[in-house]
Design a binder for these strands. Sequence first.
DNA 1: CGGCTGTACTG
DNA 2: CAGTACA
DNA 3: GCCG
Length: 834
Amino acid sequence: MKLLTPSTSKQVEPAFLPPDFNASSGEGSLSLSESDNDIPEKKWKISPEKWICAKSSKVKHSNLNSIITEKLELLILLQRMSKDSMTEENNDCIKNLELETKQVSTDTKCVYCDDEEHGEHGSKKNTKCINLSEDSTDSGYAWVILVSAFFLEVLTGCSLTSFGIMMVDIIDSTEQRASNIAFIGALLSSFLGLSGVLLGPIVHRFGCRVVVFSGSLILALCCLTTFLVRNVIVYYFSMGIVSGVGYSCYQLGAPVAVSHWFQKKKAFSLSVIMTGISVGSMLWGPITRLLINKYSWRGAVLIIGGLQLHGCLIAAILKPGPLLSKSLLEKKRSSRFNKEILKNKRFIIYCFSNFTLLYGHVVPFMMLPIKAESNGISKMNAAVLVAIMGACSTTVRPLVGYLGDKAWFDKNFVFGIFSILGGILTSASFYMRTYNLLIIYACLFGMISATYIPLTLSVAVEIVKKPEFIANGLAIILTVHGLATLVSITAFGTLDYVQLKNNCEKDTVFQHFTQSVHIQNALATTYESTGDRWRTFSYRKAAAAVKRYPRPITSFEEALAIPGVGERVANKIWEIVETGGLRKLEELSNQEDIKAISTLSGIWGVGQTTARQWVSQGIKTLEDVRNKAKLTRPQQIGLKHYDDLLERMPREEAGRIDDFVREKCLGIDADLVILCCGSYRRGKETCGDVDFLITHPDGKSHHDLLPKIIKRLGSFLTDHLVSLQQKGGQSKYLGVCKLDEEGAKHRRIDIITVPRDEYACAIMYFTGSAHFNRSMRHLAGKMGMSLSEHSLNKGVVRKRGEKLNPGVPLPTPTEESVFKHLGLKYLPPNERDH
DNA sequence: CGGCTGTACTG
DNA sequence: CAGTACA
DNA sequence: GCCG
């Protein structure tokens, strides 16, 4: 085995080599004498000196035990200390190490077996040595185990990948500082590693089946908790600490299980499951994004929790194998922490450099989706970036492993160069704002990090030199990695581009930046009360543009350059950035009348005109309205539910309303097509109302449908605001509903029924957003067309806004067709916010 | 200077 | 027709 | 109030 016979006796060959190397290396050099097959326990405790002795030059058979022992000890240490799970690379190292260990034990043809009775360990009885017949492993059920273990690792890959993807949405919906949420990720990654300390003995005691099973349940429970509870402190546990432990179970379980079943092809099998985690991290990004788009991030968490329950299935498949290496794990660890290592100045310096390296390394992984999003890249594409990074890192890693073994390969050099490259690249990434550039960044960074991260450990081994310190040294390095991860993610959340995304930051520039959005909107509202419709329009537009703008505004000119922001608004933005306020707004909004107007126009059915009229008549409070004002029917209802109707409902509630209405409608006619549109369809976390679009596939049964539906919904609809028959066959109902639940509030509900051939345009319209509809209609207008909720018409002739020729409808069977006619790429509902 | 989405009910 | 609403 |  080449591993144990390095080219020079001085060079300590690091324990981290790629599986393919081990797999392909000859077995011959290590064949052992029979006597090694029966190894008494004591013999396993062998000093590190013997290990290195075995490593340098010729292998002494009698020392092989010590090699195995030492490696296992290292393994234990690594498993405890490592899993800088951000990057999985360390795990790979562990697995490589583990695999190598297995290889050794395989080669010796000495395998430990253990009756899978849980608990009764600690005595020699349990540990016996057998000569294996080769057919009992590597085939048959072993392959089932391999596939299961592979999928287990795929499930593990979910951990930080999906959290990274989700972070943006979590920040949005919890309105927490980004750093608070990022801290969950830091906890997750730390506990993924830390829990190895606890799990090591537990895997040993209860077997990997039990551990994987519990891991699965733990994860499912965590996800359920996250789904149900709306409290960030709880998330620290449910998504951070406890989830970390859960994933740790998977992570430990898979290689252990496989090592129980594979003998000859152990190296191969371990490399297979190793790729599992990479495949997992590639897959989970897009999957998570899709789930979030469809069900919001809470829903996604719940579904992921469900998916993690597959771990139970896998646990059931993972029956104890004929080979059992875990009994080896139980050996008492002989190496204690040796302070001598701290006298090695090179090593200390190396530790610091590793800290800074990892400090910088970890952030891009976790923050990439946020960075992408803050630069206006769609969430799905951000997820794709993560997948790309994963893929690149996956492809390069085996290559590095392969090259790492070559004599001419200068690890120190490569490590140095690539870590510097990674640093430069990441610094440069600050200026990468377009999707294409970020793709390149993801690719390069994935590849570069796949190079230097595994090498950190190899280089450490070379620096430590003294064999008795290697275990300690590696443990220290891995601790440093873990620490760096924790510190960097926590710290970083408060520093860089994360803030740009957020609107709840207290930091000066950023605060002013977000405040400006707020104030612009306030100004818009204020002007609305004054009645200047088009000024309002412009403020709204400018506010939206500023909100979209991915960076803090640092100069007047920068503000002016934003489309939709002119000189006057730029002046105001600059005043906000510099002083934190806007005098004009304060003047205006301190006027009692203006406050009154905005209060009154909160009543459904009361607009600017009515509100202003009332105020001028001295009606300034809701109480005044109740007593003095003349109210229309809808306004009375609006006043009755004033507070309820101004409140937005959580997405889940909209979902329950959807279920209820859907069931009732299908009771009328099972063929009806019911779609809940509006902000719900766009995947928003809260909804101001629920919008139902209903049609019948036969193209005619939508006639007279709406009254039936309203009748059917009965007391669910508490008040009717408007119920109208439109000319073209569309009917619209606006009303108020309330679920039959404890503490349920009144909610606005809109229902429209449309003819089949207007369905696509109606969906477009009813899904919105309002602003998106305006843009689409504006675009249609510029192209000589006209878009409405009924149809997309072409050949429209307009003259000074007036339509002279209504044009002819284009065929629009689907939403896609509408986009196509307008020369646009299809946008899924969740991307129609602008 | 003139447009800034397009449609439809209520009173 | 003006006012209000829907996305 | 912004933009063409």
